[in-house]
Structures are given as structure tokens and as C-alpha cells.
């Protein structure tokens, strides 16, 4: 058994080191940068205190990005939640073609999101949008007044939210499906015998029993949404007039394209509070799973 004492650490330390170097160190560096004056190309580092944060907080673009981040995350997660709950209930029972449906429904999540977004960019094209073609044909709008989906601030926001919802919905659906499958058949049958109808069974029995798993889906969904910029980068680049700028995309434009590493880091630091809350919730749900 003496062998075991060093074998364990020897087996997991390489992995931990890798993560520490490529996640832990940059994580700390992000904080260090945010209180310094690093720029791309400059070598030196001077401590500037909270200067970057002060200048970020004064920027109207930043405040807009914070607001957009919350609008983007909250609305897409609400839509995802409603859609995923309906869809998971509709997919739970076996039916002919279930595997094919599952594959089709999963595609938006499994296909690279940048690729899926390009597909939408074509669907939402300013001139050749198929949606507009339909709207014109059914006489909802006139040919030359058709909406410019990605070119008007409000519509652009709605578009990125919907496309992101499209991307995240499958993920939440499969997680909820896992939760649904875990509900014992007996319970649903007991509800039927006890006289509960379609809606009472769904709202008073199934939905409350799914709550823990819904929490998981929303938690991960919210983290992935709040920290993602892919859909927005592809569809609008944060525009028009920063109307779809969110924290991650602003950090990218400032820190990487704008070469102001320090200010970019300061912006992305604002993601941290949300992550801390999320981590705490994950730990709590993991802990609760152990207790019960």
C-alpha cells in the first residue's frame, strides 16, 4: 500500500498543473491586467489601480453592454426554458421517428455555433431574407418596407436573442428529458388515479419534480449565454450602434482588436461576479444531491 501514497497524486497532478497553468494563471493575470496599463506591443507594466475600471464605468458603451448582456441572457433563457419544457414533454414518450426527431432537434446545439449563425445571417439577410419574402407574400409588410433584421437596433437585439435561443434550446431540452425520464412512472399513474387531469398532472406533479433539473439547465444555460459572444459577433459585431454589444464582445473589441489589453481585461472582470454566484449554485446543487 505504500505505492499508493504517491501513485494517486502522480496520476492527477499533471492534469491539475495543465489546468492551473492555462486557466488559473490567466485568471489571475486577468485581474493583474485590469489594474495595469498593458497594451499590445508594450513591454512594461505599471500599476494603475482602479483607473481602468473607472474609465470603463464612465463609458456609455460599457453601461449599454451590461444592460444588453442581461437582456440577452434573461430573455433567451426564459424562451429556452418555456420551449425546452414543452419540447421535452412532447418528446418523452416513444413515437415513430423519435431518433430522427431528436437528431434534427439537436443539430442547432451540436453544429458549430459560428456555422449555424452564418446560416441565420443568410436567412436574415437585408435583401434576400426568406422571412421577409414570406412576410411580403402574405401581405404583412410591403416589399420596400420589409424589416432590416440586423440593421435596426431593436430588431437586431430580437434577432440575436432568437438565434441564441435556437442554439441553446436543444441543450436544455435534452437535460430536461433526462429529468423527465427519471420521474417514476408510478407517480404519474398515481396522479391519474387520484383524478388529476392533463394540466394538473403537468403543473402540480411533473413540473415541480423537474425543478432541480430545470435549475441545472438554466444555470448552465445562463453561464454559457452570459459569457458567449459568438452569435453576436457573427450576426451584428455588436452593432448597429452598439445596440447588441454585450460584455464579452466589448472585451474582445477593446482588448484584442483595440489592443487595449488592460481595459479589455477590466471589462471581462465584470463577468466574474456572475460566475462566482453560478459556481456557488453548482456546488450547492452537487452538495444537495449528496445529501438526499
Amino acid at each position: 500500500m505504500r505505492q499508493q501514497r504517491w501513485l494517486g497524486p502522480a496520476m492527477f497532478i499533471p492534469a491539475i498543473l495543465y489546468i492551473v497553468i492555462l486557466v488559473g494563471v490567466p485568471f489571475v493575470m486577468a485581474f493583474v491586467y485590469s489594474v495595469g496599463d498593458v497594451k499590445v506591443g508594450s513591454e512594461g507594466y505599471h500599476f494603475v489601480g482602479l483607473h481602468n475600471f473607472a474609465s470603463v464605468l464612465k463609458s456609455p458603451t460599457f453601461l449599454l453592454a451590461v444592460r444588453n448582456s442581461f437582456i440577452f441572457t434573461i430573455s433567451s433563457q426564459i424562451l429556452v426554458l418555456i420551449g425546452a419544457t414543452m419540447l421535452s414533454m412532447a418528446l418523452q414518450e416513444a413515437f415513430p421517428g423519435r431518433r430522427f426527431f431528436r437528431f434534427l432537434i439537436l443539430l442547432p446545439w451540436v453544429a458549430p455555433v459560428s456555422i449555424g449563425s452564418i446560416g441565420w445571417k443568410w436567412i436574415l439577410d437585408s435583401l434576400y431574407s426568406v422571412i421577409n419574402w414570406v412576410l411580403v407574400r402574405v401581405h404583412l409588410v410591403k416589399q420596400f418596407e420589409a424589416p432590416v433584421w440586423l440593421g435596426e437596433p431593436k430588431l437586431a437585439m430580437i434577432s440575436v436573442i432568437l438565434v441564441h435561443t435556437w442554439h441553446m434550446l436543444p441543450f436544455a431540452t435534452v437535460i430536461l428529458l433526462a429529468g423527465l425520464t427519471a420521474i417514476p412512472k408510478d407517480i404519474v399513474e398515481a396522479a391519474a388515479v387520484d383524478g388529476a387531469g392533463f394540466f394538473r398532472t403537468r403543473f402540480q406533479i411533473i413540473l415541480p419534480m423537474m425543478l432541480p433539473i430545470i435549475n441545472v439547465a438554466v444555470l448552465f444555460g445562463a453561464i454559457f449565454t452570459f459569457t458567449d459572444m459568438t452569435v453576436i459577433y457573427i450576426l451584428t459585431r455588436g452593432g448597429p450602434y452598439d445596440s447588441t454589444q454585450v460584455l464579452p464582445s466589448l472585451a474582445f473589441f477593446t482588448g484584442i482588436l483595440g489592443s487595449d489589453l488592460a481595459e479589455g481585461a477590466a471589462i471581462s472582470i465584470f463577468l466574474v461576479p456572475l460566475l462566482v454566484i453560478a459556481a456557488w449554485l453548482v456546488l450547492r446543487s452537487a452538495h444537495r444531491a449528496e445529501v438526499t
Binding site: P184, D186, I187, E189, A190, A191, I205, M209
Partner: peptide, 8 residues
């Protein structure tokens, strides 16, 4: 029910 099927 055999499992009692109480609503947890």
C-alpha cells in the same frame, strides 16, 4: 402502488 408513488 407497490412503490407507494408518494409525490416527493
Amino acid at each position: 402502488f407497490q412503490s407507494y408513488a408518494l409525490y416527493p
